[in-house]
């Protein structure tokens, strides 16, 4: 086994070159290059984390904005609804008062017309009394030849009409 049989002849050379080579690997690569690789990885991780945080923040902002917009929309809709309700109520009130006024006018007109009719009727009725008395006086004179005074005729008509 050369590893053991040559050990006395080669150990110095092995140690010397190994220490040089391993020292270079440790100081140049391990302590020189490796931390920079590490820094790159860390920088990338930090960047990714930062980007994710920024995206999350933007998402939250968008969400807030949408919420505000939604709230405003709701508020505006409610205001519009209230306005419409108010207008409707006012229109209803106006209509009611107008109807009442028209009703009153109609009632007054009806009352007037009724009064006129009643007056005409009364007038007509009193006219009929006179005509009937005259007719009765004439009929009596023609039938019996008795002269009846207008007052008597009127009295008779009144009696008949009252009974009839």
């Amino acid at each position: 086994m050369p590893q053991i049989s040559q050990i006395l002849a080669t150990y110095a050379s092995q140690f010397f070159w190994l220490l040089i080579v391993f020292g270079l690997i440790y100081f140049v690569i391990g302590r020189g290059i490796l931390p920079r690789v590490d820094a790159t990885v860390d920088a990338r991780d930090a960047k990714i984390a930062g980007d994710l945080a920024a995206a999350e923040q933007a998402r939250a902002e968008a969400s807030d904005l949408e919420g505000a917009w939604q709230a405003e929309l709701t508020q505006t809709r409610a205001a519009a609804q209230a306005e419409a309700q108010k207008a409707k109520a006012k229109a209803q009130k106006d209509a009611v008062s107008r109807i009442a006024k028209a009703d009153a006018e109609i009632a007054a007109k009806t009352a007037d017309a009724e009064a006129v009719i009643a007056k005409a009727r009364a007038k007509a009725l009193s006219g009929i009394d006179g005509v009937a008395a005259d007719a009765a006086q004439d009929i009596v004179a023609k039938v019996s030849g008795i002269k009846v005074t207008p007052a008597q005729a009127a009295q008779a008509v009144k009696t008949v009409l009252a009974n009839g």
Binding site: T10, A12, S13, Q14, F16, W17, V21, L24, I25, I33
Partner: peptide, 23 residues
């Protein structure tokens, strides 16, 4: 001390060069 450059030393340096190029 005999610190001859040997085939072993050569391969050590080769190993180091490979790691260095890789890194």
């Amino acid at each position: 001390y005999d610190i001859s450059f040997t085939n072993s030393s050569l391969f050590m340096i080769l190993v180091m060069a490979t790691i260095w190029v890789f890194m």
